[in-house]
């Protein structure tokens, strides 16, 4: 067996799903014996069989990746309850194993996965998707890039044909529920930390009283200010104007989108807010 063959073999085995009791499956989905598979390349010792030695890695893999995804979605976990949340995370990770060197990116596609798999949240599906989107926006706002905002004299020079870039850490989200209130009610772990080789087990969830959620259209700016992530509620027109600018439409095109009686007030309000929070940047990046 070459090094590459051994690594392909072991990677496949380490990622095999666990049993409900969180042990290694005795047989693969194709019916092969894991005893035989393990014995083919792993030595037993006087205490453990080849199967049991491989099982340590199989379990460790799942504890680690499930733990990493769970850390990013405490509010979604609180909404769904542990059982439904675990089923969702497991299905997600089976379909999307990590393709990045950093665990930070592991749960990036969970909102999209949940969007396509209503069965994990049944009647709460829309709410669950909105919560997941907001929680991922938090991760991106937390450590996204911050670039030099336009100074006031540069802002003054902008004309109808100018385009702008918005701060890379700013996320604009239209949601069908006031999920910012829900997410804030669930205690958020301060920051995720990658541990150095040590086995990581998942932490018990903190119980909190969750606010009841009734449908309500909301427009949120998820952004960072002085290293803290904030959820700011926007007017629909402000949101649409910012969204158009974020998509690199010219100022004239963006303003067109919100044409109506409130147009002038919206433009003034949005530009005042954005320059105060340093959201407008040079469109070079």
């Amino acid at each position: 067996m070459t090094l590459l063959e051994l690594q392909r073999r072991m990677e496949q085995d380490v990622r095999r799903p666990l049993t409900a009791e969180l042990t290694m499956q005795p047989r693969t989905t194709e019916g092969e014996s894991m005893d035989e598979i393990a014995a083919a390349y792993i030595r037993p010792n006087s205490e453990l069989t080849s199967f049991e030695r491989l099982e340590i890695y199989n379990r460790q893999y799942w504890f680690r990746v499930i733990g990493a995804v769970s850390e990013d979605y405490p509010a979604l976990q609180a909404l769904l309850g542990d059982e439904r949340f675990d089923a969702l995370v497991l299905a997600y990770l089976k379909q999307r194993p990590s393709t990045s060197w950093t665990l930070r990116d592991l749960s990036a596609h969970l909102p999209q996965f949940l969007e396509q798999h209503a069965e994990f949240a049944s009647e709460q599906h829309r709410l669950a998707v909105d919560i997941a989107r907001l929680e991922w926006a938090y991760v991106e706002a937390f450590d996204g890039a911050e670039i030099e905002p336009l100074a006031s004299d540069e802002l003054a020079k902008l004309g109808p044909e100018s385009t702008l870039a918005l701060q890379p850490h700013l996320r604009l989200l239209a949601v069908d529920y006031p999920v910012d209130e829900f997410v804030l009610a669930v205690k958020k772990p301060e920051e995720k930390a990658v541990t150095s080789g040590a086995a990581q087990l998942r932490q018990a969830n903190v119980t909190t009283t969750l606010p009841a959620m009734a449908p309500e259209q909301r427009y949120l700016a998820v952004h960072r200010y002085d290293d803290v992530v904030y959820y700011r509620t926007l007017e629909e027109s402000e949101f649409r104007l910012l969204k158009a600018l974020q998509e690199r439409k010219t100022i004239a095109e963006a303003v067109e989108i919100i044409a109506g009686e409130e147009q002038v007030a919206t433009i003034q309000q949005t530009f005042a807010l954005s320059s105060e929070l340093g959201w407008f940047c040079h469109p070079t990046i």
């Binding site: 090094l3 051994l6 690594q7 990677e11 380490v14 990622r15 893999y61 194993p97 393709t99 990045s100």
Partner: peptide, 28 residues
């Protein structure tokens, strides 16, 4: 960083997996 492996074909295990102690592994 560690004397181990942990990824193959673009997939990452995020674990520090042991190497076979072979001459091929020494060279690689």
């Amino acid at each position: 960083d560690h004397l181990c492996w942990g990824s193959v074909d673009g997939r990452y295990t995020h674990d520090l997996l042991p190497l076979p102690y072979t001459w091929e592994a020494v060279r690689t």
